[in-house]
Amino acid sequence: MTAFDMKKARQEILDYCLRSMEYGLNFNTQGNISLRVPDEVNRFLITPTDLEYDRMTADDIVLVDENATVIDGPHEPSSEVTVHLAVYRRRPDVTAIVHTEPVFANVWGVIGEPITGTLVNMVIYTKGDVPIMPFALSNNTAFGDAMCDVMGDKNAVVWANHGLLTVGDNLRDAFKTSVAVESAARVLLHARSVTDKPIVLDFETLGITTSL
Results as ranks from 00 to 15, higher is better:
89 R>C: 09
160 A>Y: 08
83 V>G: 02
36 R>K: 13
71 I>C: 13
27 F>Y: 10
167 V>E: 01
20 S>M: 04
48 P>R: 04
193 S>K: 14
185 A>P: 00
103 V>Y: 15
144 G>R: 00
204 E>T: 07
152 G>V: 04
32 N>L: 04
44 F>A: 09
106 N>W: 01
31 G>I: 01
93 D>G: 10
133 M>A: 08
133 M>L: 05
169 D>C: 06
35 L>V: 08
85 L>R: 02
173 D>N: 01
97 I>V: 10
184 A>V: 15
44 F>Q: 07
175 F>D: 01
190 H>K: 14
136 A>I: 00
25 L>F: 13
198 P>Y: 12
138 S>P: 15
83 V>F: 14
180 A>D: 12
206 L>A: 12
155 N>Q: 14
10 R>G: 03
3 A>K: 15
182 E>P: 12
199 I>Y: 15
103 V>N: 09
176 K>E: 04
118 T>Y: 03
7 K>W: 03
150 V>L: 05
170 N>S: 03
85 L>D: 03
206 L>V: 01
58 A>N: 11
135 F>N: 11
174 A>F: 04
67 N>E: 03
18 L>W: 09
77 P>M: 00
131 P>F: 03
10 R>Y: 02
209 T>R: 12
108 W>T: 00
113 E>P: 15
4 F>K: 08
93 D>V: 05
66 E>N: 12
176 K>R: 13
168 G>D: 01
178 S>K: 04
175 F>N: 02
209 T>C: 15
73 G>Q: 12
193 S>I: 05
148 C>N: 14
53 Y>W: 13
135 F>I: 04
24 G>V: 10
79 S>P: 15
129 D>Y: 03
141 T>S: 08
76 E>R: 13
11 Q>P: 12
1 M>G: 09
66 E>C: 07
198 P>C: 07
137 L>Y: 14
188 L>I: 11
146 A>N: 14
179 V>T: 13
56 M>F: 11
165 L>W: 03
21 M>D: 11
203 F>Y: 15
73 G>V: 02
79 S>E: 05
80 E>F: 06
3 A>I: 05
140 N>Q: 13
143 F>V: 05
191 A>W: 05
181 V>C: 13
50 D>C: 01
111 I>R: 11
179 V>K: 01
10 R>A: 03
152 G>C: 10
202 D>C: 09
52 E>H: 05
207 G>Q: 09
101 E>F: 10
44 F>P: 07
17 C>H: 04
186 R>G: 04
67 N>R: 06
68 A>H: 14
95 T>C: 06
6 M>T: 11
188 L>C: 02
204 E>P: 00
134 P>I: 06
75 H>P: 03
167 V>S: 02
160 A>E: 09
212 L>S: 10
190 H>G: 10
20 S>D: 07
127 K>G: 11
210 T>K: 14
211 S>F: 00
137 L>C: 14
183 S>M: 12
103 V>C: 07
23 Y>I: 00
32 N>F: 04
91 R>Q: 11
43 R>Q: 09
151 M>A: 12
19 R>V: 03
178 S>Y: 11
160 A>L: 08
83 V>Y: 09
162 H>R: 01
124 I>A: 07
205 T>P: 08
157 V>D: 10
159 W>H: 12
125 Y>L: 11
122 M>S: 00
91 R>L: 05
46 I>D: 02
176 K>L: 07
